[in-house]
Design a protein around this nucleic acid. Sequence first.
DNA 1: TTAACTGCAAAGGCTTTGCTATATA
DNA 2: TATATAGCAAAGCCTTTGCAGTTAA
Lengths: 143, 143
Amino acid sequence: MRNQGSLRSTLHQRGMRMTPQRQLVLDAVRELGHATPEQVCKRVQGTAATVNITTVYRSLDLLEQLGLVRHTHLGHGAPTYSADEHEHVHLVCHHCGAIDEVPCELLDGLADLLAEQRGFALDASHLGLSGTCRNCRENPTAV
Amino acid sequence: MRNQGSLRSTLHQRGMRMTPQRQLVLDAVRELGHATPEQVCKRVQGTAATVNITTVYRSLDLLEQLGLVRHTHLGHGAPTYSADEHEHVHLVCHHCGAIDEVPCELLDGLADLLAEQRGFALDASHLGLSGTCRNCRENPTAV
DNA sequence: TTAACTGCAAAGGCTTTGCTATATA
DNA sequence: TATATAGCAAAGCCTTTGCAGTTAA
């Protein structure tokens, strides 16, 4: 489901189409790396000014169902969307709001533990991890 | 800062008071274990019907600054507040919404890793961990 | 020509803000 | 009496819903 052709046929099987708007939303997510629906919308509007935020929300939902994008809740406010290829764990500093990324494999040990003890299959990328970043620890006065 | 006397004096030093509303909000959080601001408000209104949701929000903020309560983002919608004593990691199932709790110590290994590699001080209780719970894995048709 | 899709407007959850009245030291 | 606080109403974000016009197979 990675290339355009199979994407189109997947949609076609469901009686759906790859519209320009949907393509623009997907492109925007890929280009931006991480972005809120609002940011995606801004970006899309750079190319097609009349695209509505409602369409962005609906496209993001659809693309997520298709497994092409994924959203992550970083704590406060809007979630951020990223392309499925671009998977990692987010470290959110709740002092300054900085977001760092680390490989999902860092959580493998924890994932095994949770699977054993609770039967819980961890999805490391869907929620961020919060804490205090290096900078805020070293400069507690700042912010 | 655990007992009422020192709480009152902490507030007094700041020119603030422990009002009945604030006490009711704190009591409600402690009684409910986990609760959204809305749920806290309902509970408080059981005792004092005129207390406004705005007051609940402001009280929760204040109590959080004082280190008496803590909020956790579980993904969608409103955060849940709990008493500071009541610390643990939340496992959120993004299929059925079930919330499980595990001891924070389960994340000690990860916390050490993040501290070493990124200088990041993990706060295990502020964000939930998302994934698929045992029940949803064993009964994928359900929900 | 039918079904999917978009855009628009409105509404819905959650939260904050501004203001006035009240209560407490 | 001065200051913190509560309550109320309104507004602000973020998101969803309903609907009518448009587009594409």
